[in-house]
Amino acid sequence: MLVVLTAVFSLLGACSSRPDVGALALNNTPAEGARVHDVLIVTTRERDDRPDTYFNGERAGKTNYAAASVSVPPSHVPGAIEWPGSLPGDPAKDFVARDASYLADRTAYQSRLNQELRERSRGQREVFLFIHGFNTLFAEGLYRFTQFSHDAGYAGVPVLFTWASRGKIQDYLYDLNSAAIARDALEQTLTDLAASDAEEITILAHSMGNWLLMETIRQMPASERRKLQPRIKRIIMAAPDIDIDLFKASMKKLGTPKKPFVVVVSKDDRALRASRALSGGVERLGAFSNDEELTELGAVVIDLTEVHSADATHHSKFAALAEFSPELQQALAHRSLTSHSSIDGPNDLGQDLGGFVGNAAQTAITLPIRIIAAPVTLARGGT
């Protein structure tokens, strides 16, 4: 069994070199068509004194704050991260860091957050919070979030919550305990967002980050949850590495949410198969096969099983959804999904989503997904 698990998890870290020491080397060379994204950072990672590194995978014992600007190249392919072959990268074809700095403390972070929000017009003062998963280096979480925000055309304020993952396949239990340690810091972050000038908050968590999110929401005092709830636009749980029985227990304790959680699953997720083997054979939420049971708990299920995966583990398919964010937002806002008790049926939803994108291009590349139990196809222009 150990040999099988090692082989599967090795797929997750299969790239020849990963961005670690010096990964945020700055490059301010102009590049026509490149777009820069400013990201606020809240982390329980330890500061790293090595040049252009900022944070490592060890636990800080306190919450640190930072800000970074990352440039996406004009040749960017949706869903991908164009990693530099050598640092500091070429902004014409690579993701590159344009700026990065520590923020002094929580007060400085709160001030920067509200400043960013006030620079946006009313009705656009939104925050997008991302919580990464297992086996994620600091730069990997930052660049993945930048990719998703860029492909989604997100205009709000991106906030990355990055906990102390070592980014090593053999450190699954270390990462799980690091996520547990980060619960109080994430609770404070959610409380700060609820008290900020943000009009709406979208939360996206990936893999083990969903375990952290659910445990944090569960431990929050009811009074704090009530303050947060009106600001929540959507909670998206991508490939959640959560014991399905634990998720059911948490949802029963919390009750059916006023706005359903969006659970992104893929039944061919190899990383979650390995996690299931490590966890006594109990199914993981992100690979759960009973969509109807999840909807009864107050979730909208997006099934990506039939979507082609760019990574060998099929664990990061959610990255492809960003390109279709406007269409998905419209579908999820449809009246058939606004009330758990009034779902109109799979055909109705399928026709609605298809209508949003079906005529988007004369030549189409299809991305097959399922929402609830409805076969739905999204299309993007291509050749």
Score class of each variant (00 low, 15 high):
Asn27Phe: 09
Phe9Lys: 03
Ala108Gln: 14
Pro84Lys: 08
Tyr174Pro: 01
Glu82Tyr: 00
Thr313Gly: 09
Pro51Tyr: 02
Asn28Pro: 02
Pro84Gly: 03
Ser207Lys: 05
Gly85His: 05
Glu215Ala: 07
Ala108Pro: 08
Asp311Val: 00
Leu117Tyr: 01
His76Phe: 13
Gly133Met: 11
Ser316His: 02
Thr29Met: 01
Phe288Tyr: 15
Ser196His: 07
Arg226Tyr: 06
Ser101Phe: 06
Thr202Val: 04
Ile302Trp: 09
Ser341Val: 00
Lys93Ala: 14
Leu337Met: 09
Val282Met: 03
Gly141Arg: 02
Gln229Trp: 06
Val8Gly: 02
Lys168Cys: 05
Glu306Leu: 14
Trp211Ile: 03
Tyr109Glu: 08
Leu367Val: 01
Asn347Lys: 15
Val36Ile: 15
Leu103Asp: 01
Arg183Ile: 14
Ala360Asp: 01
Pro221Ser: 08
Phe130Pro: 06
Pro91Thr: 10
Gly141Gln: 11
His37Thr: 12
Leu285Pro: 05
Ala319Cys: 11
Gly153Ile: 13
Tyr102Asp: 06
Arg50Phe: 08
Thr107Cys: 05
Asp269Lys: 07
Ser325Ile: 10
Arg112Tyr: 06
Asn114Trp: 09
Ala182Cys: 05
Ala108Gly: 07
Gly85Phe: 02
Gly286His: 04
Ile236Pro: 09
Leu228Arg: 08
Ala320Ile: 07
Gln115Trp: 07
Ser316Phe: 10
Ala277Val: 07
Thr162Phe: 05
Leu26Asn: 05
Asp268Thr: 14
Ala364Arg: 15
Glu283Asn: 10
Pro221Thr: 11
Gln124Arg: 14
Leu103Phe: 00
Leu87Phe: 12
Glu200Ile: 01
Arg231Glu: 09
Ser149Glu: 11
Ser69Lys: 13
Pro51Asn: 03
Ile242Phe: 03
Arg106Phe: 09
Leu321Gly: 04
Arg234Lys: 11
Ser149Pro: 08
Gly209Asn: 08
Ala379Arg: 15
Ser196Gly: 12
Asn64Trp: 10
Glu126Asp: 15
Phe161Ser: 10
Ala180Arg: 15
Gly141Phe: 09
Ala205Thr: 13
Pro84Asp: 02
Gln329Met: 11
Asn177Pro: 06
Gly381Ser: 14
Thr313Gln: 10
Ala271Cys: 02
Val77Leu: 13
Ala222Lys: 05
Ser16Leu: 00
Ser316Gly: 05
Lys259His: 11
Pro257Met: 07
Gly156Val: 07
His76Glu: 12
Cys15His: 08
Thr136Ala: 11
Gly355Ser: 13
Ala312Leu: 15
Asp48Gly: 06
Leu160Met: 15
Gly153Phe: 14
Asn135Arg: 08
Val77Ala: 10
Val376Ser: 02
Ser279Lys: 10
His37Asp: 04
